[in-house]
Structures are given as structure tokens and as C-alpha cells.
């Protein structure tokens, strides 16, 4: 597969279960290695650790160190991003406040609910003010209030000109947020273009998605 995520856009990465979305994201983040091909992040090879300096990442199932607090987690991430201590503290506090975790900032992460862990993951991904956000199923595990909060946050980041690449099963959210989409099935890229081209201006994203996947399955 080959695709390009334009700067300052929100790019939806869609596909049924087992299509290869998380595998692709793991390759982009250099957790697993592709057999062939190249991946570039902001012009640098993804194998270069410095290429990830401008990236904020949220895994599908965020799991952090049990015996640390959210504040300690952010302190660590800020230090690895070369942020000054005062900036780590001010930006960390603002993010924890924004994600309604300020009261739990000094509690151990093992006491967090799944939704709180997901929101702590957002704070961790956004701490160093990255230009590119790579989010794997960012809305899974969140209650309606949490989802609303994160969607609003993503809207704000979009307005701020950040590039957001995220995978999701929830097509309504993709339709609300994304400028472009890529559709994947069984490791093959079926479509990669603007959302308007995908829906053709007449159908919904869900209809276009189901049609594409069904046709692909029938052709195999």
C-alpha cells in the first residue's frame, strides 16, 4: 500500500477488523518492521528516532506504568522531549485540567478507569505540542461525555493546524472530523482521497464504506 497524509489535515484510516490498520500504525511507529517499502514522517525515515520528535501517539489500548501518577508520567515524557521543567508543569497541568484529570493527577495510574487511562494517554500524546498526531482507535473505551470531550479537543487541534491521522470504527466520528480517508481491507488499500470523493456527495460514508468492502470481498 502507498499513501500520503497531507499536512494540516485530519486523515481517517478505516477498515473492518483485521484489515491491518493497527499493524500499519505499528509500522509507522517502528514497533514492527515492514518486509519491503519505506515510511517517512515529516520527510525523515521512520527508523530515525528523531522523526518521532514531532509525533504524538496514542495506542489502541493505552497501558501505562501502574505505580506512577499521571503527573509523573507527564514529567517523564516532557523530559524525553527536552522540555523545560516549568513548561512541562504548566502544559501538563493545563492538559490534565482540560481532560478533567486534574483531581486524579497525583493518583497512581493503576487506580484509573479505562476512560481515564485513555484521557491520560491523550495528555501524554499532546504534552510536547506535536505537529502530527497518530491515534489508534482514540474514541474506544470512552463514555459519551469522554467522547464528546475528545471530539471537541480534536476539532480544536484541527483548527490549530495539526495533522491528525487516526483509525476508527466509528464512521460518524470520521465523517465529522476528517478531510481525507483511506479505506483498507485485508491489508490492501482500496481508497485514499478526500471524504467528499469517497461519499460522492450523495451517499453517507457508511454506505460508501460497506459498498467498497463488500465489492472487494466478492472480487477475491
Amino acid at each position: 500500500m502507498s499513501f500520503n497524509v497531507p499536512e494540516k489535515t485530519v486523515f481517517g484510516f478505516l477498515g473492518p477488523n483485521g484489515a491491518g490498520k493497527s499493524t500499519t500504525i505499528k509500522m509507522i511507529m517502528d514497533f514492527i518492521r515492514p518486509d519491503t517499502g519505506k515510511i517517512h514522517i515529516c520527510g525523515q525515515s521512520h527508523r530515525e528516532p528523531l522523526a518521532r520528535k514531532r509525533v504524538g501517539f496514542l495506542p489502541e489500548h493505552p497501558y501505562y506504568y501502574d505505580n506512577l501518577t499521571a503527573r509523573e508520567l507527564l514529567d517523564f515524557l516532557g523530559k524525553t522531549a527536552d522540555m523545560p521543567t516549568s513548561l512541562i508543569r504548566s502544559r501538563g497541568d493545563a492538559l490534565l485540567e482540560r481532560l478533567q484529570l486534574a483531581d486524579a493527577a497525583d493518583k497512581l495510574l493503576r487506580t484509573y478507569s479505562k476512560g481515564m487511562q485513555q484521557r491520560a494517554g491523550f495528555a501524554a500524546a499532546l504534552l510536547h505540542d506535536p505537529d502530527l498526531l497518530i491515534l489508534d482507535e482514540p474514541l474506544s473505551g470512552l463514555d459519551p461525555i469522554g467522547r464528546h470531550m475528545i471530539i471537541n479537543l480534536l476539532m480544536e487541534l484541527k483548527q490549530a493546524g495539526k495533522t491528525i491521522f487516526f483509525s476508527s470504527h466509528i464512521l460518524n466520528d470520521i465523517e465529522r472530523l476528517c478531510d481525507s480517508v483511506a479505506i483498507l481491507n485485508c491489508g490492501r488499500l482500496l481508497f485514499c482521497d478526500s471524504l467528499a470523493t469517497c461519499t460522492g456527495g450523495t451517499s453517507t460514508l457508511e454506505e460508501a464504506f460497506v459498498t467498497m468492502i463488500t465489492n472487494d470481498d466478492l472480487s477475491q
Binding site: M29, R52, V55, G56, P59, H61, P62, Y63, Y65
Partner: peptide
């Protein structure tokens, strides 16, 4: 548990 993802997602080699 893939906690390592959090560390390697930074510029840590």
C-alpha cells in the same frame, strides 16, 4: 502490556 509503546513513541531509540 505494550507500555514500551509509550516510551518508544517518543524520540527514544
Amino acid at each position: 502490556k505494550k507500555t514500551i509503546y509509550m516510551v518508544l513513541a517518543t524520540s527514544t531509540s
